[in-house]
Design a protein around this nucleic acid. Structure first.
Lengths: 215, 215
DNA sequence: CCGATGTTTCGGCGCGCAGCGAAGCATTTC
DNA sequence: GAAATGCTTCGCTGCGCGCCGAAACATCGG
């Protein structure tokens, strides 16, 4: 018998985080911010359907555990998802939550739109995200140039561009700094536009012409 | 105002799963099985430090949510992690749980051993896992042959071999069917051996000679 | 300054759920 | 068949924590 602390007592580092995410109200808060938005406490409270005071408590916990970051501006406090790892963990959980039952739900709203294209933190996910990843993997930096991306955006290390398992597709899309630049780029050029009140992204007419050509 | 259910009410699919994982006892159970082992209910109860009846209830929930799978054999019921996605989600959560504080803990046991090499479900993780992934990414199937792997193990689709973000290294290691075969291969050849009561893997003298040469 | 707005702190209520022990069911052993 | 072992079901108890409203604290506008 070893004296060293048993693995059973060291493991549940993930338990704290999971417990934080596991509360339905906090989960709704995270969901509201998962699109990459920066929202003040009041709006988050409303989105989650709870009192301001209740929300405040939850937000404090989410900050404590490093899931959210906050920036004070005047009398507002703007909350956002702390980093890409958090978004990645939430997508990974969503993937597990995907029960085989109800496979046809992807045909209906609001899943249909989310499946086609959505933001995941600051990058692109969904069918479109997967296709972008495929194209990038096939042609590398040449593809980035063809898409009109600044060459400063080219990935340096592994953490600048890495694959992230996509919840709806069960395949990978691109994550990391490069992926953020790419999404910004698509939005600036109006190839994609954000749907209101949702993480869904829509392909604009320009996007249909320009972006699809690249895939 | 659209009538369709708002995104805030559709999102928390991940909440259910997180809530299940978030309970400390259930987390210990998952931790005990994360090494890839197949354990009977009684042993899991003991590892988690709870009554058999308490454990039984938890195990039922873990089954219900698809986190564990079970196989009856005589009067025993053997539980195991249901699939790689679950392991992936747990590693992703662990990554988030990694607080910047206490960065020196990796120097001490039991973290030191886990950081070097460990099982993650059925594949190899930790420093060694990352290095294996690098080598495979560099040389592709040629590396697999050099490692003495049967060519039947070569990956077919994307899901056979995909990168998984490593909790301790913050870089990727290899996951998927290929990774499972690879780990089996290493264990069969006695290049690696399982530490008792832990997910940690140890490099054997043969492993030091043969495996390190390949990296 | 003073009232309005946004946010956090505090106190108290109530539900949900993890925990145990005892009893029930299944399977193996002698 | 009876006793032993492994696991699950049931009923109960207690604590933790999410919830709200009221009040305190901050910041902005006039």
């Amino acid at each position: 018998m070893s004296v060293m602390s048993s693995p059973s007592s060291v493991e549940p580092r993930f338990a704290r985080i999971a417990a934080i995410i596991g509360d339905p109200t906090r989960a709704r808060m995270l969901g509201a911010l998962l699109g990459g938005a920066c929202l003040p406490a009041g709006e988050i409270a409303q989105a989650a359907g709870v009192n301001a005071s209740t929300a405040s408590g939850h937000l404090a916990k989410l900050i404590d555990e490093g899931l959210l970051a906050v920036e004070a501006q005047g009398r507002h406090r703007y909350y956002r998802v702390a980093n890409g790892d958090v978004a990645h963990a939430l997508e990974a959980l969503s993937l597990v939550a995907e029960r085989p039952a109800g496979a046809d739900k992807w045909q209906r709203e609001p899943y249909r739109s989310l499946k086609f294209a959505r933001t995941c933190y600051r990058h692109l996910a969904g069918e479109l995200g997967v296709r972008v990843y495929e194209a990038y993997r096939r042609d590398g930096r040449a593809w980035l140039e063809r898409a009109g991306l600044d060459r400063a955006a080219a990935p340096q290390g592994e953490r600048d561009a890495y694959p992230c398992l996509d919840w709806s597709e069960r395949r990978h899309h691109l994550a990391g700094r490069l992926a953020s630049s790419l999404l910004d780029h698509f939005l600036e050029r109006r190839w994609l536009s954000r749907a209101p009140q949702s993480r869904a992204l829509r392909l604009t007419p320009q996007g249909r012409r320009s972006l699809l050509e690249l895939l």
